[in-house]
Amino acid sequence: MDLENQRRIKEFAEQYGSEDFILVLGGGEAEASGLAAETVSVGDPTFAGPLAGVSLGLKAYHIFELKDEIDPAVYEEQISMMEMVLDVDAIMQEVATYRG
């Protein structure tokens, strides 16, 4: 995960706590999305960024998992095209792995 994003997420978590704070991912690929979810839950597995060794315990969801929470018209306009393009099941399964 991008080092700058790690820094910002760390700051937000410190500011708002991890109880009512979730991370919404929009990645186009299962492995990269899983890596992001892992980084914000147990820490940066590449030990490169501010979240190296920092376990924030944040829950990450991919936007595909939140379909039912979103206004169908907005989802249709913003997300439905990519639903046809990407491997939705693989992404959702990978991201869910890191929510314990």
């Binding site: 306009e77 913003q78 997300i79 439905s80 095209m81 990519m82």
Partner: peptide, 9 residues
């Protein structure tokens, strides 16, 4: 236009 891939395309 918005930044989602769908909006861009």
């Amino acid at each position: 236009s918005g930044a989602s891939p769908q909006a861009v395309m």
